[in-house]
C-alpha cells in the first residue's frame, strides 16, 4: 500500500480547528444547563410548622443538627424534606441504552477501518 502523506495544515486552519472543537465541547456542556435539562429532579414535601419530631429526627440526630448550627428545625426543613425523584420511563432508559451502544459500536467500526490502514502501512512496506 502506498504511504499516505498528510497535507500540512496552515496556521489559520489550526486555529479554526481549535475553535470548532471548543465551541462543540463548551456548547454541549452548557446547552443542557441553559435549558435547565441538567441536574436532577428533586421534590420537596412541605411540612407545616416543622418540629424535629415531625421531620422524623431522633434525639441523636437533633443533637448533631444543633452542633452543625441548625438550632431551628425550620432551617433544616428544606435539607431534610427535599428528595430525589427517581421515577423514570423505560422508554427513556431504552433510548439512553441505544445511544450508548450505538456510540461505542460506531467507535469500534470506524476505528477498525483506520487501524487496518495503520497496520498495513506499518508492516507491509
Amino acid at each position: 500500500m502506498a504511504k499516505y502523506t498528510p497535507p500540512v495544515q496552515s496556521k489559520l486552519g489550526q486555529i479554526i480547528d481549535v475553535i470548532v472543537l471548543l465551541a462543540l465541547s463548551i456548547g454541549s456542556l452548557y446547552i443542557p444547563l441553559i435549558y435547565g435539562l441538567s441536574g436532577s429532579a428533586k421534590v420537596t414535601t412541605v411540612v407545616e410548622n416543622p418540629t424535629w419530631e415531625s421531620l422524623g429526627q431522633n434525639e441523636a440526630m437533633v443533637k448533631q443538627w444543633n452542633a452543625l448550627g441548625f438550632t431551628d428545625p425550620a432551617a433544616a426543613h428544606d435539607l431534610i424534606t427535599t428528595r430525589f425523584d427517581y421515577s423514570f420511563s423505560w422508554l427513556n432508559l431504552a433510548f439512553m441504552a441505544v445511544v450508548l451502544i450505538g456510540y461505542f459500536f460506531m467507535l469500534i467500526k470506524l476505528s477498525d477501518k483506520e487501524y487496518r490502514e495503520v497496520i498495513s502501512e506499518k508492516f507491509e512496506r
Binding site: 456542556l29 443542557p32 435539562l37 436532577s40 433510548f95
Partner: peptide, 9 residues
C-alpha cells in the same frame, strides 16, 4: 437516575 439528559447530551 437524575442526570440522564446530561448523559445523552
Amino acid at each position: 437516575l437524575g442526570y440522564g439528559t446530561q448523559l445523552v447530551a
